[in-house]
Design a protein around this nucleic acid. Sequence first.
DNA 1: AATAATTTTTAGATTCGTCTAAACATTTAT
DNA 2: ATAAATGTTTAGACGAATCTAAAAATTATT
Lengths: 219, 219
Amino acid sequence: MNYSTSEENYIKSIYHLQQQSELVTTNSLAHEINTRPASVTDMLKKLHVKKLLEYEKYKGFRLNATGSKVALNIVRRHRLWEYFLVTKLGFDWDKVHVIAEELEHVSSTELIERLDGYLNFPKADPHGDPIPDMHGKVPHINQQSLADVAEKKTVFVSSVSNQSPEMLELLKHYNIKIGTSLKVNKRFLFDGSVEIRVMKHTACVISEQVAKNIFVHHD
Amino acid sequence: MNYSTSEENYIKSIYHLQQQSELVTTNSLAHEINTRPASVTDMLKKLHVKKLLEYEKYKGFRLNATGSKVALNIVRRHRLWEYFLVTKLGFDWDKVHVIAEELEHVSSTELIERLDGYLNFPKADPHGDPIPDMHGKVPHINQQSLADVAEKKTVFVSSVSNQSPEMLELLKHYNIKIGTSLKVNKRFLFDGSVEIRVMKHTACVISEQVAKNIFVHHD
DNA sequence: AATAATTTTTAGATTCGTCTAAACATTTAT
DNA sequence: ATAAATGTTTAGACGAATCTAAAAATTATT
């Protein structure tokens, strides 16, 4: 099956909202997609007819197996393009999302499979989010917030959830990138700040707010 | 300005038809775009209002300067993506056109400029067609039909104007690609066929019809 | 030059995705 | 338990891009 850009956007958004909370409402979806609730209802009917989701008037809706598979395929395309834009074209993380939203709707399967190979089958996009494989299987990436890492542990940066220019500036200053090793020297309970050692060099202290946005993995 | 995918397709097709013959008709455009003449008329009115072409009912139409610039930009995007698909993702020439037709509508200027740089500012796409620069300037590629090359001259394939699967099959059989060196051994006046030597290997004879479609450059 | 054939345009309908405004259902608060 | 507030759906309209069928203009033929 082939879906319109609009249908794909709805499917993708439902999928994302479902990740965050079990129940997705007409209103939340309308808000996410930047449209009116009435439009959402219209599209829900369409997607229900196409058997991509379960839907009962006034009761709610949820992607079914087929719908989820379609969603994962869109997510796959999106994240592979993001990876491409950052690693090959040198875009900053915070610029790629909008462009990938367009590229993700290009429909050729062979294009995506070749791109995947060209990129060397990455497991996660530049934000650290896992890239589903062609069958919709999502690789497990065991990451943890830096704010939760035990003292004395050494970990590696896998992603950063806040991609504002301010955050990027801060990371650049401390020389923290994806893959950088961090050793948690001490956590201060008073304000949640953390003293870390970056790449075996100088130690520094970062606030809890920053630590919460840095995701890491062990070895 | 930003144009819809549909508008872009019309502009691009008008541009291509104008390259082949000065006068483009409603019918020929409808045929090219695989639509009905009535739809073409509708769109012509729209593009006229947007000041992309000159148009007088029943008289004809032509892209104006603005329209041509838009067209060249679409062509640029299309050809850069084709180049990418072939040189980076390893697609065969004959497969890339359809995919590039989708990619060409992705609107980010920065994407295209970075892609251009990543590909090392190619001057021509894999079919040998010139890639306009960001200002719409088309690099001059001094090519000549193989049918016009003098005997004993050695030349290099720069493009092939007929991209049918049949033509590509033939080229593959003779091992002729973009960049391949060809020495013209003998031209037979009787039927215009040409004996050539491909890459200093075996000689072979190709028909005038084929020779006319192969474009070459010296050194 | 008149008529026939062809090409182009108009008129009106259709589908998709959206909207507003009103109606309806559910949830919350009194 | 009823009324108020909130959330969801329906009804009807609209713009974009297409279509068919018929009308109008142009071009070709006799």
